[in-house]
Design a protein around this nucleic acid. Structure first.
Lengths: 237, 237
DNA sequence: GCGCCTTGTCAGGAAGTTCTCAGAGTTCGG
DNA sequence: CCGAACTCTGAGAACTTCCTGACAAGGCGC
Protein backbone atom coordinates (compact mmCIF):
# COMPACT_ATOMS: atom_id res chain seq x y z
CA UNK A 1 0.00 0.00 0.00
CA UNK A 2 2.94 2.32 -0.45
CA UNK A 3 1.58 3.49 -3.80
CA UNK A 4 -1.66 5.44 -3.89
CA UNK A 5 -4.78 4.05 -5.45
CA UNK A 6 -4.95 6.91 -7.95
CA UNK A 7 -3.96 10.57 -8.20
CA UNK A 8 -6.77 13.10 -7.93
CA UNK A 9 -7.04 16.80 -8.57
CA UNK A 10 -9.55 18.65 -6.39
CA UNK A 11 -10.67 22.00 -7.84
CA UNK A 12 -12.96 23.85 -5.44
CA UNK A 13 -12.89 27.47 -4.29
CA UNK A 14 -14.68 27.11 -0.93
CA UNK A 15 -11.86 26.46 1.51
CA UNK A 16 -13.89 24.34 3.92
CA UNK A 17 -15.13 22.00 1.26
CA UNK A 18 -11.75 21.82 -0.45
CA UNK A 19 -10.09 20.80 2.79
CA UNK A 20 -12.85 18.38 3.70
CA UNK A 21 -12.43 16.67 0.34
CA UNK A 22 -8.65 16.77 0.41
CA UNK A 23 -8.39 15.29 3.87
CA UNK A 24 -10.90 12.54 3.42
CA UNK A 25 -9.76 11.54 -0.06
CA UNK A 26 -6.18 11.31 1.12
CA UNK A 27 -7.42 9.19 3.95
CA UNK A 28 -9.34 7.02 1.49
CA UNK A 29 -6.00 6.16 -0.07
CA UNK A 30 -5.75 8.61 -2.99
CA UNK A 31 -2.93 10.97 -3.76
CA UNK A 32 -4.55 14.41 -3.78
CA UNK A 33 -3.60 17.78 -5.19
CA UNK A 34 -5.91 20.70 -4.50
CA UNK A 35 -6.52 23.99 -6.32
CA UNK A 36 -8.85 26.89 -5.46
CA UNK A 37 -9.25 28.04 -9.08
CA UNK A 38 -8.86 27.03 -12.72
CA UNK A 39 -5.42 28.47 -13.30
CA UNK A 40 -3.90 26.80 -10.27
CA UNK A 41 -5.58 23.61 -11.41
CA UNK A 42 -3.94 23.85 -14.83
CA UNK A 43 -0.55 24.39 -13.26
CA UNK A 44 -0.94 21.39 -10.95
CA UNK A 45 -2.13 19.24 -13.83
CA UNK A 46 1.07 20.00 -15.67
CA UNK A 47 3.20 19.06 -12.69
CA UNK A 48 1.41 15.83 -11.84
CA UNK A 49 -0.11 12.92 -13.62
CA UNK A 50 -3.81 13.20 -12.81
CA UNK A 51 -6.12 10.17 -13.01
CA UNK A 52 -9.33 12.00 -12.17
CA UNK A 53 -10.44 15.52 -11.30
CA UNK A 54 -13.07 16.45 -8.73
CA UNK A 55 -14.26 19.80 -9.99
CA UNK A 56 -16.65 22.45 -8.79
CA UNK A 57 -18.68 23.79 -11.70
CA UNK A 58 -18.54 27.35 -10.34
CA UNK A 59 -15.03 28.70 -10.01
CA UNK A 60 -13.80 32.27 -9.55
CA UNK A 61 -11.82 32.53 -12.78
CA UNK A 62 -13.46 30.16 -15.28
CA UNK A 63 -16.16 27.54 -15.06
CA UNK A 64 -15.44 23.88 -14.50
CA UNK A 65 -16.31 22.89 -18.04
CA UNK A 66 -13.73 25.30 -19.42
CA UNK A 67 -11.10 23.94 -17.04
CA UNK A 68 -12.00 20.45 -18.13
CA UNK A 69 -11.67 21.31 -21.83
CA UNK A 70 -8.30 22.94 -21.25
CA UNK A 71 -7.12 19.98 -19.23
CA UNK A 72 -8.05 17.65 -22.07
CA UNK A 73 -6.46 19.84 -24.71
CA UNK A 74 -3.15 19.68 -22.93
CA UNK A 75 -2.94 16.27 -21.41
CA UNK A 76 -4.54 12.90 -21.48
CA UNK A 77 -8.23 12.33 -21.33
CA UNK A 78 -8.79 12.86 -17.62
CA UNK A 79 -12.26 11.91 -16.33
CA UNK A 80 -14.08 14.39 -14.11
CA UNK A 81 -16.49 14.24 -11.21
CA UNK A 82 -18.31 17.57 -11.14
CA UNK A 83 -19.64 19.23 -8.00
CA UNK A 84 -22.65 21.44 -8.37
CA UNK A 85 -25.31 23.14 -6.29
CA UNK A 86 -28.49 21.11 -6.15
CA UNK A 87 -30.67 23.76 -7.78
CA UNK A 88 -28.35 24.70 -10.62
CA UNK A 89 -28.74 21.33 -12.27
CA UNK A 90 -27.47 22.49 -15.61
CA UNK A 91 -28.35 20.80 -18.87
CA UNK A 92 -24.65 20.42 -19.50
CA UNK A 93 -24.43 18.14 -16.47
CA UNK A 94 -27.14 15.85 -17.67
CA UNK A 95 -25.12 14.81 -20.70
CA UNK A 96 -22.19 13.87 -18.51
CA UNK A 97 -23.12 10.41 -17.49
CA UNK A 98 -22.98 9.21 -21.09
CA UNK A 99 -19.23 9.79 -21.15
CA UNK A 100 -17.02 8.56 -18.38
CA UNK A 101 -17.85 11.59 -16.27
CA UNK A 102 -20.34 11.97 -13.47
CA UNK A 103 -21.52 14.59 -11.00
CA UNK A 104 -22.72 14.93 -7.40
CA UNK A 105 -24.79 17.76 -6.03
CA UNK A 106 -23.83 19.88 -3.04
CA UNK A 107 -24.22 19.30 -0.21
CA UNK A 108 -22.95 15.76 -0.60
CA UNK A 109 -21.91 12.94 1.70
CA UNK A 110 -18.34 11.71 1.58
CA UNK A 111 -19.57 8.16 1.14
CA UNK A 112 -21.22 9.28 -2.07
CA UNK A 113 -18.20 11.15 -3.44
CA UNK A 114 -15.81 8.29 -2.80
CA UNK A 115 -18.23 5.77 -4.30
CA UNK A 116 -18.68 7.90 -7.42
CA UNK A 117 -14.96 8.45 -7.82
CA UNK A 118 -14.36 4.71 -7.64
CA UNK A 119 -17.15 4.11 -10.13
CA UNK A 120 -15.76 6.59 -12.63
CA UNK A 121 -12.26 5.18 -12.26
CA UNK A 122 -13.59 1.69 -12.77
CA UNK A 123 -15.36 2.68 -15.95
CA UNK A 124 -12.46 4.62 -17.41
CA UNK A 125 -9.37 2.73 -16.33
CA UNK A 126 -9.61 0.04 -18.94
CA UNK A 127 -6.03 -0.98 -18.43
CA UNK A 128 -6.83 -2.23 -14.97
CA UNK A 129 -7.96 -5.79 -14.57
CA UNK A 130 -11.63 -5.55 -15.36
CA UNK A 131 -12.48 -7.66 -12.38
CA UNK A 132 -15.78 -5.88 -12.36
CA UNK A 133 -16.95 -7.37 -9.11
CA UNK A 134 -18.52 -4.34 -7.54
CA UNK A 135 -20.33 -6.42 -4.95
CA UNK A 136 -19.68 -6.12 -1.25
CA UNK A 137 -20.26 -9.31 0.70
CA UNK A 138 -20.59 -10.11 4.38
CA UNK A 139 -21.90 -13.55 5.19
CA UNK A 140 -25.00 -14.02 3.02
CA UNK A 141 -25.56 -10.30 2.72
CA UNK A 142 -24.64 -8.67 -0.59
CA UNK A 143 -24.63 -5.09 -1.80
CA UNK A 144 -24.19 -4.51 -5.50
CA UNK A 145 -22.85 -1.09 -6.39
CA UNK A 146 -23.78 -1.19 -10.07
CA UNK A 147 -27.29 -2.52 -9.70
CA UNK A 148 -27.74 -0.50 -6.54
CA UNK A 149 -29.28 -3.55 -4.97
CA UNK A 150 -29.15 -5.38 -1.67
CA UNK A 151 -29.76 -9.10 -1.15
CA UNK A 152 -29.75 -11.33 1.89
CA UNK A 153 -29.60 -15.07 1.34
CA UNK A 154 -30.42 -14.43 -2.30
CA UNK A 155 -33.57 -12.48 -1.55
CA UNK A 156 -33.68 -8.93 -2.90
CA UNK A 157 -34.33 -6.31 -0.25
CA UNK A 158 -35.67 -2.90 -1.07
CA UNK A 159 -33.79 -0.12 0.73
CA UNK A 160 -34.02 3.67 0.59
CA UNK A 161 -31.05 5.75 -0.61
CA UNK A 162 -29.92 6.62 2.90
CA UNK A 163 -30.27 3.05 4.04
CA UNK A 164 -28.14 1.99 1.09
CA UNK A 165 -25.38 4.46 1.93
CA UNK A 166 -25.41 3.46 5.58
CA UNK A 167 -25.23 -0.21 4.73
CA UNK A 168 -22.42 0.37 2.25
CA UNK A 169 -20.43 2.22 4.88
CA UNK A 170 -20.99 -0.53 7.41
CA UNK A 171 -19.98 -3.21 4.92
CA UNK A 172 -16.90 -1.33 3.77
CA UNK A 173 -15.86 -1.31 7.42
CA UNK A 174 -17.04 -4.78 8.35
CA UNK A 175 -15.66 -6.03 11.67
CA UNK A 176 -14.70 -2.55 12.77
CA UNK A 177 -16.70 -0.64 15.36
CA UNK A 178 -17.93 2.69 13.99
CA UNK A 179 -19.04 5.46 16.30
CA UNK A 180 -22.24 7.34 15.61
CA UNK A 181 -20.15 10.46 14.95
CA UNK A 182 -18.12 8.58 12.36
CA UNK A 183 -21.24 7.29 10.67
CA UNK A 184 -22.82 10.72 10.67
CA UNK A 185 -19.69 12.26 9.15
CA UNK A 186 -19.46 9.75 6.35
CA UNK A 187 -23.01 8.88 5.44
CA UNK A 188 -24.85 12.17 5.90
CA UNK A 189 -24.30 15.42 3.99
CA UNK A 190 -21.55 17.60 5.37
CA UNK A 191 -24.02 20.34 6.26
CA UNK A 192 -26.34 18.09 8.24
CA UNK A 193 -27.16 19.78 11.53
CA UNK A 194 -29.21 17.08 13.19
CA UNK A 195 -28.53 14.86 16.13
CA UNK A 196 -26.98 11.43 16.23
CA UNK A 197 -30.39 10.01 17.02
CA UNK A 198 -30.93 9.72 13.31
CA UNK A 199 -28.21 7.11 13.11
CA UNK A 200 -30.10 5.06 15.66
CA UNK A 201 -33.25 5.43 13.59
CA UNK A 202 -31.61 4.23 10.39
CA UNK A 203 -29.85 1.37 12.13
CA UNK A 204 -33.28 0.39 13.34
CA UNK A 205 -34.73 0.61 9.80
CA UNK A 206 -31.87 -1.46 8.40
CA UNK A 207 -32.22 -4.11 11.08
CA UNK A 208 -35.87 -4.46 10.28
CA UNK A 209 -35.05 -5.03 6.62
CA UNK A 210 -31.90 -7.14 6.62
CA UNK A 211 -31.51 -8.55 10.11
CA UNK A 212 -34.85 -10.05 10.99
CA UNK A 213 -34.10 -13.57 9.85
CA UNK A 214 -30.88 -15.50 10.16
CA UNK A 215 -28.04 -14.50 12.45
CA UNK A 216 -28.08 -10.76 13.08
CA UNK A 217 -25.15 -9.02 11.41
CA UNK A 218 -25.51 -5.54 12.88
CA UNK A 219 -24.41 -5.36 16.50
CA UNK A 220 -24.58 -2.54 19.03
CA UNK A 221 -21.47 -1.83 21.05
CA UNK A 222 -23.07 0.11 23.84
CA UNK A 223 -21.30 3.38 24.55
CA UNK A 224 -19.04 2.88 21.54
CA UNK A 225 -20.94 2.44 18.30
CA UNK A 226 -22.11 -0.18 15.83
CA UNK A 227 -20.39 -2.99 13.99
CA UNK A 228 -21.46 -5.20 11.12
CA UNK A 229 -19.76 -8.55 11.28
CA UNK A 230 -19.84 -12.17 10.29
CA UNK A 231 -21.78 -14.41 12.61
CA UNK A 232 -19.81 -16.69 14.89
CA UNK A 233 -20.31 -20.21 16.15
CA UNK A 234 -20.72 -19.46 19.84
CA UNK A 235 -22.08 -16.10 20.76
CA UNK A 236 -21.57 -14.89 24.25
CA UNK A 237 -21.60 -11.16 23.55
CA UNK B 1 13.94 2.88 23.06
CA UNK B 2 16.20 5.89 23.29
CA UNK B 3 14.29 7.54 20.48
CA UNK B 4 10.76 8.73 21.15
CA UNK B 5 7.77 7.00 19.66
CA UNK B 6 6.58 10.20 18.02
CA UNK B 7 6.70 13.95 18.58
CA UNK B 8 3.53 15.58 19.84
CA UNK B 9 2.40 19.16 20.18
CA UNK B 10 -0.02 19.81 23.05
CA UNK B 11 -2.06 23.01 22.65
CA UNK B 12 -4.21 23.70 25.71
CA UNK B 13 -4.68 26.88 27.72
CA UNK B 14 -5.71 25.38 31.06
CA UNK B 15 -2.43 24.93 32.87
CA UNK B 16 -3.50 21.93 34.91
CA UNK B 17 -4.68 19.95 31.93
CA UNK B 18 -1.71 20.99 29.81
CA UNK B 19 0.72 19.76 32.44
CA UNK B 20 -1.27 16.61 33.09
CA UNK B 21 -1.12 15.79 29.40
CA UNK B 22 2.50 16.78 28.96
CA UNK B 23 3.70 14.72 31.89
CA UNK B 24 1.78 11.59 31.11
CA UNK B 25 2.42 11.68 27.38
CA UNK B 26 6.13 12.04 28.01
CA UNK B 27 5.88 9.13 30.37
CA UNK B 28 4.08 7.16 27.69
CA UNK B 29 7.17 7.53 25.52
CA UNK B 30 6.36 10.52 23.33
CA UNK B 31 8.43 13.61 22.81
CA UNK B 32 6.16 16.46 23.85
CA UNK B 33 6.10 20.20 23.21
CA UNK B 34 3.38 22.24 24.89
CA UNK B 35 1.79 25.59 24.07
CA UNK B 36 -0.89 27.58 25.90
CA UNK B 37 -2.16 29.36 22.77
CA UNK B 38 -2.23 29.28 19.00
CA UNK B 39 0.67 31.61 18.34
CA UNK B 40 3.04 29.74 20.64
CA UNK B 41 1.88 26.56 18.94
CA UNK B 42 2.78 27.92 15.53
CA UNK B 43 6.22 28.92 16.74
CA UNK B 44 6.88 25.50 18.25
CA UNK B 45 5.67 23.80 15.10
CA UNK B 46 8.26 25.69 13.11
CA UNK B 47 11.04 24.67 15.46
CA UNK B 48 10.15 21.01 15.71
CA UNK B 49 8.94 18.26 13.46
CA UNK B 50 5.47 17.45 14.80
CA UNK B 51 3.84 14.08 14.14
CA UNK B 52 0.53 14.84 15.81
CA UNK B 53 -1.11 17.71 17.67
CA UNK B 54 -3.38 17.38 20.70
CA UNK B 55 -5.45 20.53 20.51
CA UNK B 56 -8.12 22.18 22.62
CA UNK B 57 -10.77 23.66 20.35
CA UNK B 58 -11.16 26.69 22.64
CA UNK B 59 -8.02 28.76 22.83
CA UNK B 60 -7.46 32.34 24.01
CA UNK B 61 -6.20 33.78 20.72
CA UNK B 62 -7.74 31.65 17.96
CA UNK B 63 -9.76 28.47 17.87
CA UNK B 64 -8.22 25.06 17.38
CA UNK B 65 -9.53 24.72 13.85
CA UNK B 66 -7.78 27.90 12.78
CA UNK B 67 -4.54 26.73 14.37
CA UNK B 68 -4.90 23.44 12.55
CA UNK B 69 -5.40 25.14 9.21
CA UNK B 70 -2.37 27.35 9.74
CA UNK B 71 -0.28 24.38 10.77
CA UNK B 72 -1.24 22.57 7.59
CA UNK B 73 -0.68 25.58 5.39
CA UNK B 74 2.86 25.92 6.65
CA UNK B 75 4.09 22.45 7.25
CA UNK B 76 3.29 18.88 6.53
CA UNK B 77 -0.09 17.35 6.98
CA UNK B 78 -0.15 16.94 10.75
CA UNK B 79 -3.08 14.95 12.17
CA UNK B 80 -4.92 16.35 15.16
CA UNK B 81 -6.67 14.97 18.21
CA UNK B 82 -9.12 17.65 19.34
CA UNK B 83 -10.16 18.19 22.94
CA UNK B 84 -13.63 19.58 23.46
CA UNK B 85 -16.19 20.12 26.19
CA UNK B 86 -18.79 17.40 26.23
CA UNK B 87 -21.73 19.71 25.58
CA UNK B 88 -20.22 21.68 22.70
CA UNK B 89 -20.45 18.59 20.58
CA UNK B 90 -22.29 20.28 17.74
CA UNK B 91 -21.21 22.36 14.86
CA UNK B 92 -17.59 22.38 13.92
CA UNK B 93 -16.80 18.97 15.27
CA UNK B 94 -18.79 17.52 12.43
CA UNK B 95 -16.46 16.15 9.84
CA UNK B 96 -13.60 15.48 12.18
CA UNK B 97 -13.65 11.75 11.88
CA UNK B 98 -13.45 11.72 8.09
CA UNK B 99 -9.72 12.23 7.81
CA UNK B 100 -7.18 10.87 10.17
CA UNK B 101 -8.38 13.24 12.86
CA UNK B 102 -10.38 12.39 15.95
CA UNK B 103 -11.59 14.02 19.14
CA UNK B 104 -12.12 13.26 22.82
CA UNK B 105 -14.47 15.10 25.12
CA UNK B 106 -13.45 16.72 28.39
CA UNK B 107 -13.19 15.46 30.99
CA UNK B 108 -11.25 12.54 29.56
CA UNK B 109 -9.20 9.67 30.94
CA UNK B 110 -5.52 9.46 30.05
CA UNK B 111 -6.05 5.91 28.86
CA UNK B 112 -8.48 7.22 26.31
CA UNK B 113 -6.22 9.99 25.09
CA UNK B 114 -3.22 7.73 24.66
CA UNK B 115 -5.31 5.08 22.91
CA UNK B 116 -6.75 7.65 20.51
CA UNK B 117 -3.34 9.16 19.79
CA UNK B 118 -1.99 5.72 18.93
CA UNK B 119 -5.02 5.02 16.75
CA UNK B 120 -4.62 8.24 14.81
CA UNK B 121 -0.90 7.68 14.35
CA UNK B 122 -1.56 4.15 13.17
CA UNK B 123 -4.09 5.35 10.62
CA UNK B 124 -2.04 8.23 9.29
CA UNK B 125 1.49 6.89 9.28
CA UNK B 126 1.23 5.22 5.91
CA UNK B 127 4.94 4.63 5.65
CA UNK B 128 4.71 2.14 8.46
CA UNK B 129 3.95 -1.44 7.61
CA UNK B 130 0.18 -1.61 7.69
CA UNK B 131 0.33 -4.70 9.80
CA UNK B 132 -2.95 -3.61 11.24
CA UNK B 133 -2.77 -5.91 14.22
CA UNK B 134 -4.43 -3.81 16.84
CA UNK B 135 -4.71 -6.71 19.23
CA UNK B 136 -3.19 -6.88 22.70
CA UNK B 137 -2.36 -10.38 23.89
CA UNK B 138 -1.52 -11.86 27.27
CA UNK B 139 -1.58 -15.64 27.47
CA UNK B 140 -4.86 -16.70 25.85
CA UNK B 141 -6.48 -13.35 26.57
CA UNK B 142 -6.93 -10.96 23.67
CA UNK B 143 -8.21 -7.40 23.40
CA UNK B 144 -8.97 -6.09 19.92
CA UNK B 145 -8.99 -2.33 19.55
CA UNK B 146 -10.82 -2.19 16.19
CA UNK B 147 -13.56 -4.61 17.03
CA UNK B 148 -13.61 -3.33 20.59
CA UNK B 149 -13.80 -6.90 21.68
CA UNK B 150 -12.26 -9.16 24.31
CA UNK B 151 -11.69 -12.90 23.98
CA UNK B 152 -10.30 -15.52 26.31
CA UNK B 153 -9.25 -18.83 24.81
CA UNK B 154 -11.14 -17.84 21.68
CA UNK B 155 -14.41 -17.18 23.47
CA UNK B 156 -15.87 -13.71 23.10
CA UNK B 157 -16.48 -11.88 26.35
CA UNK B 158 -18.83 -8.95 26.62
CA UNK B 159 -17.37 -6.08 28.64
CA UNK B 160 -18.63 -2.59 29.41
CA UNK B 161 -16.68 0.51 28.28
CA UNK B 162 -15.05 1.02 31.67
CA UNK B 163 -14.16 -2.63 31.96
CA UNK B 164 -12.61 -2.41 28.51
CA UNK B 165 -10.46 0.59 29.43
CA UNK B 166 -9.36 -1.01 32.68
CA UNK B 167 -8.41 -4.25 30.96
CA UNK B 168 -6.54 -2.37 28.24
CA UNK B 169 -4.56 -0.52 30.88
CA UNK B 170 -3.74 -3.74 32.70
CA UNK B 171 -2.70 -5.46 29.48
CA UNK B 172 -0.57 -2.53 28.32
CA UNK B 173 1.22 -2.86 31.65
CA UNK B 174 1.26 -6.62 31.86
CA UNK B 175 3.64 -8.03 34.46
CA UNK B 176 3.86 -4.67 36.20
CA UNK B 177 2.09 -4.02 39.48
CA UNK B 178 -0.26 -1.04 39.28
CA UNK B 179 -1.49 0.74 42.40
CA UNK B 180 -5.15 1.56 42.77
CA UNK B 181 -4.24 5.25 42.63
CA UNK B 182 -2.40 4.72 39.36
CA UNK B 183 -5.32 2.85 37.88
CA UNK B 184 -7.73 5.51 39.02
CA UNK B 185 -5.58 8.23 37.46
CA UNK B 186 -5.29 6.52 34.11
CA UNK B 187 -8.58 4.77 33.56
CA UNK B 188 -11.02 7.24 35.12
CA UNK B 189 -11.68 10.83 34.01
CA UNK B 190 -9.32 13.34 35.54
CA UNK B 191 -12.16 15.01 37.44
CA UNK B 192 -13.38 11.82 39.07
CA UNK B 193 -13.87 12.47 42.77
CA UNK B 194 -14.80 9.01 43.95
CA UNK B 195 -13.03 6.53 46.14
CA UNK B 196 -10.57 3.85 45.16
CA UNK B 197 -13.15 1.28 46.08
CA UNK B 198 -14.41 1.58 42.56
CA UNK B 199 -11.21 0.04 41.28
CA UNK B 200 -11.85 -2.96 43.51
CA UNK B 201 -15.35 -3.19 42.13
CA UNK B 202 -14.23 -3.18 38.53
CA UNK B 203 -11.41 -5.61 39.16
CA UNK B 204 -14.05 -7.85 40.64
CA UNK B 205 -16.28 -7.44 37.56
CA UNK B 206 -13.38 -8.22 35.27
CA UNK B 207 -12.35 -11.29 37.22
CA UNK B 208 -15.85 -12.62 37.01
CA UNK B 209 -15.81 -12.20 33.26
CA UNK B 210 -12.31 -13.17 32.18
CA UNK B 211 -10.74 -15.02 35.08
CA UNK B 212 -13.26 -17.65 36.10
CA UNK B 213 -11.84 -20.46 34.01
CA UNK B 214 -8.24 -21.28 33.26
CA UNK B 215 -5.32 -19.89 35.21
CA UNK B 216 -6.22 -16.55 36.76
CA UNK B 217 -4.37 -13.67 35.12
CA UNK B 218 -5.30 -10.84 37.47
CA UNK B 219 -3.46 -10.99 40.78
CA UNK B 220 -3.79 -8.92 43.91
CA UNK B 221 -0.62 -7.61 45.49
CA UNK B 222 -1.94 -6.89 48.90
CA UNK B 223 -1.13 -3.39 50.10
CA UNK B 224 0.38 -2.55 46.70
CA UNK B 225 -2.03 -3.01 43.86
CA UNK B 226 -2.92 -5.35 41.02
CA UNK B 227 -1.00 -7.05 38.26
CA UNK B 228 -2.07 -8.91 35.15
CA UNK B 229 0.51 -11.48 34.18
CA UNK B 230 1.21 -14.66 32.30
CA UNK B 231 0.59 -17.79 34.35
CA UNK B 232 3.66 -19.58 35.74
CA UNK B 233 4.32 -23.22 36.50
CA UNK B 234 4.81 -22.90 40.26
CA UNK B 235 3.06 -20.03 41.92
CA UNK B 236 4.87 -18.39 44.76
CA UNK B 237 3.04 -15.05 44.52
C1' DG C 1 -52.58 18.00 -7.17
C1' DC C 2 -52.55 13.72 -4.65
C1' DG C 3 -50.64 9.93 -2.58
C1' DC C 4 -46.61 7.46 -1.37
C1' DC C 5 -42.08 7.09 0.04
C1' DT C 6 -38.42 9.09 2.55
C1' DT C 7 -36.32 11.87 5.94
C1' DG C 8 -35.75 13.57 10.39
C1' DT C 9 -37.58 14.50 15.34
C1' DC C 10 -39.13 13.08 19.52
C1' DA C 11 -40.52 10.72 23.66
C1' DG C 12 -41.46 6.57 26.51
C1' DG C 13 -39.75 2.57 28.00
C1' DA C 14 -36.28 -1.11 28.11
C1' DA C 15 -31.81 -2.34 28.97
C1' DG C 16 -27.20 -1.64 30.37
C1' DT C 17 -23.67 0.91 33.16
C1' DT C 18 -21.63 3.43 36.88
C1' DC C 19 -20.80 4.12 41.50
C1' DT C 20 -21.53 3.57 46.51
C1' DC C 21 -22.00 1.04 50.48
C1' DA C 22 -21.87 -2.47 53.89
C1' DG C 23 -20.92 -6.91 55.46
C1' DA C 24 -18.18 -11.02 54.80
C1' DG C 25 -13.79 -12.81 53.93
C1' DT C 26 -8.71 -12.75 54.00
C1' DT C 27 -4.01 -11.59 55.40
C1' DC C 28 -0.56 -10.27 58.57
C1' DG C 29 1.90 -8.53 62.59
C1' DG C 30 2.42 -9.16 67.16
C1' DC D 1 -4.60 -16.62 67.97
C1' DC D 2 -6.46 -11.87 67.90
C1' DG D 3 -7.34 -7.63 66.06
C1' DA D 4 -6.54 -4.32 62.53
C1' DA D 5 -6.14 -3.38 57.96
C1' DC D 6 -7.15 -4.62 53.64
C1' DT D 7 -9.90 -6.79 50.01
C1' DC D 8 -13.94 -8.88 47.75
C1' DT D 9 -18.54 -8.92 46.23
C1' DG D 10 -23.69 -8.54 46.18
C1' DA D 11 -27.34 -5.27 46.28
C1' DG D 12 -29.30 -1.39 44.71
C1' DA D 13 -30.01 3.58 43.38
C1' DA D 14 -29.10 6.92 39.92
C1' DC D 15 -27.92 7.62 35.59
C1' DT D 16 -26.97 6.94 30.57
C1' DT D 17 -27.69 4.83 26.30
C1' DC D 18 -30.42 2.62 23.03
C1' DC D 19 -34.63 1.07 20.55
C1' DT D 20 -38.82 1.84 18.39
C1' DG D 21 -43.35 3.61 17.21
C1' DA D 22 -45.69 7.83 16.12
C1' DC D 23 -45.69 11.67 13.45
C1' DA D 24 -44.78 15.98 10.66
C1' DA D 25 -42.61 17.81 6.71
C1' DG D 26 -40.79 17.51 2.23
C1' DG D 27 -40.06 15.54 -2.32
C1' DC D 28 -41.20 12.73 -6.31
C1' DG D 29 -43.88 10.28 -9.63
C1' DC D 30 -48.14 9.67 -11.64
Amino acid sequence: MSTAEATLLVVEDETNIRELLTTSLKFAGFEVHAAPDGNTAMRLAEEHDIDLAVMDVMLPDMDGFTVTRKLRDHGRDVPVLFLTARDSLDDKLKGLTVGGDDYVTKPFSLEEVVARIRAVLRRTQTFEPADEDTTLRVADLELDEDRHEVTRAGRVIDVSPTEFKLLRYLMLNANRVLSKAQILDHVWDYDFRGEMGIVESYISYLRRKIDTEGEPLIHTKRGVGYVLREPRDHESA
